[in-house]
Write a protein that binds this DNA or RNA. Structure first.
Ligand code: MN
Ligand code: MN
Ligand code: ZN
Ligand code: ZN
Lengths: 147, 147
DNA sequence: GACGACTTTTTGACAGAGTCCAAGTTGAGC
DNA sequence: GCTCAACTTGGACTCTGTCAAAAAGTCGTC
């Protein structure tokens, strides 16, 4: 669907700023609000920081964009919504990678015991170290042993 | 085990501040650093915010305390560690409830595709609405219909 | 017990992310 | 064209959390 219709269908006015923010989020998943300010500025010349924050909040509210907030990182945004996917996050460099739900579609919504809660989302963050950071540590260890 | 030995065994000096922070975390699971500052002050008279943060960081590092960071909330601390349990979180009131891992012991560490990451923790947050908040909404809806 | 190296605490400043104003301007949509 | 929504500008402000330097405390050793 064209971006223009996407916005209309979600009941928000179509503006140059909103189109630019949407494209920025699409072009670089898991980016920060600051990243988006820069990308959008490159595209349409100027956009205020406030406008980017307002737009992102609107998009998240309307379900156009998803926000994740890993510990120690500013909020990250992506346009992959509604598929209940999860994230691998590197403790060393902060890299974020998508990972499909291991159980299937909307399955992990089943907690062992829901305690009477009405659950609508299962958010899973897999913490660890990415291939690059694993390698660089190994190298460091090796060189330490070598002298 | 007495708190005193617990600290020694984890290789940290025993201080009044650390004992107070540990007790604060134990007495009220899933509380914020600010909560802990207040609780600890009530107990030992004075303690600096910095000291609470330092202590919590040390405790997390040493595995004495676990930190969780739900989206949109400051970090929360608990003394239930090493059992890979998860959390139910109410979108309305922020209530946090423990829930055992539905898959068993350390199972959800298995992502569908680890992308070469070395995963050491799977943090699962089940989002929804707690029984109390469900009820209060129902009541509101009912009363709206009644006039 | 007292000493002394080392760790912890205190204090106050500071940083990062994000929100909230407010007033004026621009722009979208009917 | 009119009306209401969205954007800009600039600053103040909140909330979490960290940094740095000086003061105080812990604990192994004498
Ligand atoms: Mn993603
Ligand atoms: Mn818990
Ligand atoms: Zn990495
Ligand atoms: Zn609730």
């Amino acid at each position: 669907m064209a971006a223009h219709e996407l916005l209309r269908d979600h009941g928000v006015h179509v503006t140059a700023q909103r189109l630019a923010v949407l494209r920025a989020v699409s072009s670089r998943p898991h980016c920060t609000a600051e990243n988006i300010v820069e990308t959008a500025k490159d595209e349409i010349g100027t956009i205020s920081r406030q406008s980017v924050y307002d737009t992102l909040n609107t998009f998240v509210e309307k379900g156009l964009v998803r926000r994740i907030q890993p510990t120690g990182s500013p909020a990250l945004y992506e346009d992959r919504v509604g598929d209940n996917h999860h994230h691998l996050i590197c403790r060393d460099c902060g890299r974020v990678v998508d990972v499909d739900c291991s159980v299937g579609a909307m399955p992990c919504l089943q907690a062992a015991n829901d305690n009477g809660f009405e659950i609508d989302e299962a958010e899973v963050a897999y913490w660890g170290r990415c291939p690059e950071c694993k390698t660089s540590t190994l190298e460091k260890t090796a060189s330490n042993h070598n002298h």
